[in-house]
Structures are given as structure tokens and as C-alpha cells.
Design a protein around this nucleic acid. Sequence first.
DNA 1: TGATCGTAAACTGTAGACAGTATACGACAT
DNA 2: ATGTCGTATACTGTCTACAGTTTACGATCA
Lengths: 225, 225
Amino acid sequence: MRNNSVTRQTLADQVFERIVDAIVVGDIKAGSPLSENEIAVRFNVSRGPAREAIFRLEAKGLATRVAHFGARVVDLSLDDLRSLFELREALECMACRLAAERISDAEVAVLEDCLRGHAERPEVVAGQSYYQPGGDQDFHFAIARASHNQRLFRALSDNIYDVMRPYRFRSSQTPGRAIEALKEHRAVVEALRSRDPAKAEAAMRAHIRSSWLNTQSAFQKAERS
Amino acid sequence: MRNNSVTRQTLADQVFERIVDAIVVGDIKAGSPLSENEIAVRFNVSRGPAREAIFRLEAKGLATRVAHFGARVVDLSLDDLRSLFELREALECMACRLAAERISDAEVAVLEDCLRGHAERPEVVAGQSYYQPGGDQDFHFAIARASHNQRLFRALSDNIYDVMRPYRFRSSQTPGRAIEALKEHRAVVEALRSRDPAKAEAAMRAHIRSSWLNTQSAFQKAERS
DNA sequence: TGATCGTAAACTGTAGACAGTATACGACAT
DNA sequence: ATGTCGTATACTGTCTACAGTTTACGATCA
């Protein structure tokens, strides 16, 4: 039972989480139709929980719905991705600035552990791509948490990271990006350690824009093939 | 025969909108419990659409739900409001910066119309509070739209403005705030007209922080009474 | 009198059936 | 052959009924 949380999960919760996983991992492809009936049959529940799960996918930004027609998994264009990166820049730069004002020594230590863990990864040592699912994810989560702003944290974790993950995965193979990203992460942590909000925000902005350039070129490359 | 809207609304849509209005206007007070049955009876629908409406209220940030227990209208503390203002600052400053890069002449004209409309309001002329429901709302909507970033626009319109509105209404009575706000708005438009992103972002940040200080003191004053 | 346990009531969660709507396909007319 | 209309089908939207859970209240016992 991985159901050790305080309140017992409802069927809708379970279906929702499993669909999110399936989308993020790639088992359900972008643009796929999401039929209430199909989901209900697939997970052995009635249409109620299936329908509810789809609503929550829509709220999360992973699906689009049209009344009386149905829902589909979002299929982001390059423009959509640009919009998403702009949104992420707004949220995460603010989170980083607030974190510089409010972060505790223990939270700084967590970030430094993250960096150490990343530096030891074989991909980094070999100079290849360093992004593994959940890898720098932890890093960004820790910063969002250190902002001590619950709404900001939830906006990032619920509505940004999971939506971007399938597309970041595609673009994480660029050679050399691993070490570059690690350097940028170090700059962010350094600014946070010295509690310099302006520097922290600037370092995060530089990191996200660099990540966008990388994602953009990978996206265009993938489209040509 | 078609309904006069593009796609015919579902019952859940209607119930949702009516509850949002009731909360924003103040007919349903902050902290009130939202019973599925009660809503269903009140709007002459079954529990299905009522339940769906509550889900959407939760996604919007206007209600909180606990499984097997129920939902309540959010009741924001001062700390919650601070978090919300920080989130708003992040989103709206980004929107303003992007708007400075992308705004059309027609969109600038709309903003200038907004300012003219505000300046002519009797409250402003009399030096009283200038905020009327929907008044500067239009202004901020126009800027969000001028960012030409759909996700940013929706985050602001769906998840920020409606949640804040009940609390901004309380705090809009401060004498002299009307003219101050109008000045700040003019500074924003001036920066947008000259397509200066940094200046536009700074002007918006100043406006939001000023608005926060005003809201904060009004909140504390209201609590003491 | 106080605390604890058990029962009942009220609510949410889930299932299944019915109703309404949009799309797709085929028949018909031009 | 092509365009249009009508019907059929499959899907979502809605309703009702039932099951499960949580809270609250009252009875019982120390």
C-alpha cells in the first residue's frame, strides 16, 4: 500500500495520478483523445471518477476540454512552450528572490546536497546530458519550497513542472548542456547562500533562459526529423 | 435555435459562474461551508453539476476541499494575502514587460481610454477612493491581454483577480488612494507607449506594492474593529 | 462528573441508467 | 460526381440510487 497518507485517497485521486504519470512518462502521447468511457474501463471505475480525473487534468493544464465533445492531452506548439517558459520565468524568479530573503541554513544545505548529487552523476562526469527525470526537478522544487509561499510553490509544482516535463525530456540530450546547467545551478545556490535577492533572481533568470534556448533548438531539431 | 453564446453552457458552467459571482460580490461569505446538496437544491440541479462547480471553485482558488468532508469558501489571512500579492507581482510584472515588447497601437489606445474613463470618475475628482468593481479591473485585464501570452492571461484572470476582488473591495475606501493609483497607472501606460520593458515592469511593480501596502493597512484596520 | 465508546445521522464518493448533443456516414437529389 | 440532407451512432451531460466515511451526539461506565 503506497497509500500511507493521512486521508485515504479516492478513486478519482488514484485515476488522476496514474494518468498524469502516464502522460509525463509518455505512455499517453500528446494530442491523444481522453474518452471518459475508455478511462473508466481501463481503471475499473465508473465514469464519475474518470470524469473527475479529466477535470483535474484540465485544471493542471495537461488536457483541454470542449463541452459535449471531449478532452485531449495537450500538444504544445513551440509558441505554447515559449508562453510556458515565460510563465515559468515569472514564477521561478520571484520564488528565487523570496527564497534569498527567507531561506534557512538547513534549506541551503539541501540545495548543496542536490548540487553534490548532480556533480557525481556519470553523465556529468562524461560531459553528456545531465538531466534525468527527477534530477534537477528536486533542485527546482527545493527552491520553490524555500520561497515560503505556498501558492507560488503550488503554481510551479502543479501547473508548470509536470506540463513541461515531457518536452524537457526530449531536449535534455544536448551534449554539454549538463555541465552548463550545473554551473548555472551553482550560481543560484551561491546567491541564495549569501542571501542576495537581486543576484539570486538574476541567476535564476539566466538559467531559465538558457534552458529555453536549449529546449527551443531541440524542439526545432525534433520537428525537422 | 442556438443559445446566444457560442457553445451552449452546461448546468455546471452556470452554477459555477453564479457561485463565483455570489462569492465575489459577498453574498456568500468567506469561510462559509459549501454543501453539494445545498448548492444542488439552491440552483435546481442534481448533485453532479453542483459537485463539478465546487471542483472548479477549488481549481480557481476560491474554495478548499477535504476528501469525505466538504468544501469551504477560502478565508484569506493576511499572510495568505501577502502570498497572493507576491504571486500577482510575479505574473503581472512579467505581463507588463512582455506587453511593452508586443503591444499594438490599438491596444495602447484602449489603455489610454481606460485612463480617461478613470480620470472623469467623480470619486477621483472629489479626491476619494477611485476603485469601483470592474474599474481598474479593466485596466489590468487589458495589460494582461497585451502580453500576448495566453497562459499568463488566464493565470491572472482565472486565479488571481477574482480571488483578490472581495479583499480589494474592502480596502478601496482609503482617501486619496484613487488619485495615487491613477498616477501609477499613467506611469505604466507611459512606459508601455514608449515600449520600454524595464520601465514598464518597474512601474507595475511600484503600483502593485503600493496597492499591497494599502490593502494591508486596510485589512489590519478592519480586523481591529 | 468526566471520559470513552458506540451508534446514528449527514455528508461525500461511486455506480449505473437515461437524456441530450455533436459528429459521421449514407442516401438522395441535382 | 458532388453537394446536401437526414438518420444513426457514440459520446458527453445529467439524474437517481446506493455505499462508504466522517462527525456528532448520547449512553454507559469508572
